[in-house]
């Protein structure tokens, strides 16, 4: 019986700690420390998951990187765009910090670039609620979460030739 009470008493506290942990360690969109275009620290404090990153890059509602970039490393992904440079070998050309900076806000690296900022929440003209064409009803989230940004960075780091 005593054990049972203790169990119930602890559970909410434990759950709260678990839920709070990753959020507490996350860097919020407005507080990113750029060094030029680069961002040295992981936004989550931990390395991302490359396989999840590949998914983010090819999902239209998420990163949709292949809308603009070709990537021979993903031969199964049809209809790759060619507005930006091909991403193969990106990790030979750029450091982890530079790649993270480009996914967060590529305009800090390439002045005036067409590439969208994926981890930014302010400074937009008529931002919409996703692809609905309507004004957002709540506070605007970044296009990608901190975790998704780290996942994409982890995938980009696999692109060596």
């Amino acid at each position: 019986m005593k054990r049972h009470v203790a169990h119930w008493a602890m559970a909410p506290a434990l759950a709260a700690t678990l839920a709070a942990l990753p959020v507490a360690a996350e860097t919020a969109p407005g507080t990113i420390a750029f060094d030029g275009g680069a961002v040295a620290a992981s936004l989550t404090g931990a390395p991302g998951d490359a396989a999840a990153g590949a998914k983010v890059m090819t999902t239209a509602a998420l990163g949709n990187c292949v809308a603009c970039h070709e990537l021979a490393a993903m031969p199964d992904v049809q209809f790759q765009g060619n507005i930006g440079p091909a991403l193969d070998g990106a990790a030979d050309r750029w450091t982890e910090a530079e790649l993270r900076g480009m996914v967060v806000n590529a305009k800090m690296t390439f002045d005036g670039t067409m590439m969208p900022a994926f981890y930014k929440t302010d400074g937009f003209i008529r931002p919409g609620d996703g692809y609905t064409g309507k004004a957002p009803e709540a506070e605007l989230p970044p296009v990608l979460t901190a975790q998704q940004v780290e996942d994409v960075v982890a995938y980009l780091l696999t692109l060596k030739e």
Partner: peptide
């Protein structure tokens, strides 16, 4: 315009 994630 909608495709830019904008309020049209």
């Amino acid at each position: 315009v909608r495709d830019t994630r904008a309020e049209t």
